[in-house]
């Protein structure tokens, strides 16, 4: 048996299953529901980004505005602000629930270290005094092996109404 064949076999044995990938992404959504933003931030790779495009079929975050485009250091500022006592747009706070479904592995690297996983989501946001808000669309997660677990390289949230006007957005999708 060649070395390459051995390593592919090892990679297959170590590859994450769809169930494991789904659990990771569902757990990530739970962290957001529970507003454990620091724990959420820790899931991202150092070069990780959180992205919600503002146009259908938007190819780049550099050539078109986005609803959210947070590199890891920006995400940190966002989270510091979410915890700041003077964040008026979270007084009162939002309560959210995200429901995920239709998981598919779109792509996996041969060495079993990188994955692109697609899922669908519905998210409700309630805030006392404000209208109930409902968002929906697709998540596309690019994930990378980190030790025994995974980290997020890109989390992309494609909203069905991404090209429309939004009231204030405080909760990442």
């Amino acid at each position: 048996m060649t070395t390459t064949a051995t390593s592919i076999k090892t990679a297959r044995r170590n590859a994450f299953t769809l169930d494991e990938l789904r659990s990771f992404i569902e757990d990530e959504a739970d962290l957001l529901d529970e507003q454990r933003f620091d724990d959420w931030h820790a899931l991202f790779a150092e070069d990780g980004v959180y992205w919600a495009p503002a146009a259908h079929d938007q190819e780049s975050w550099l050539t078109h505005v986005s609803l959210y485009f947070d590199e890891k250091h920006i995400m940190k500022t966002r989270i510091a602000r979410l915890k700041h006592p003077m964040i008026h747009c979270q007084d009162p706070k939002s309560a959210c629930v995200r429901v995920l479904s239709n998981f598919k592995v779109e792509w996996a690297s041969e060495d079993g270290n990188e994955y692109r996983v697609r899922s669908k989501f519905i998210m409700l946001e309630d805030r006392k005094g404000a209208d109930r808000r409902c968002y929906g669309g697709r998540y596309i997660h690019t994930l990378r092996r980190r030790g025994d677990g995974l980290e997020i390289v890109v989390k992309k949230a494609e909203l069905t109404n991404c090209d429309q006007a939004f009231p204030m957005l405080t909760q990442p999708f």
Binding site: A52, T63, V65, T77, D91
Partner: peptide, 21 residues
């Protein structure tokens, strides 16, 4: 384009508190 996402978008650090006001 990147900076305006965090200063003047619906999700930006500044605009959200203005909208609340």
């Amino acid at each position: 384009v990147k900076f305006v996402n965090i200063t003047h978008s619906a999700s930006s650090f500044i605009q959200t508190d203005d909208l609340e006001a």
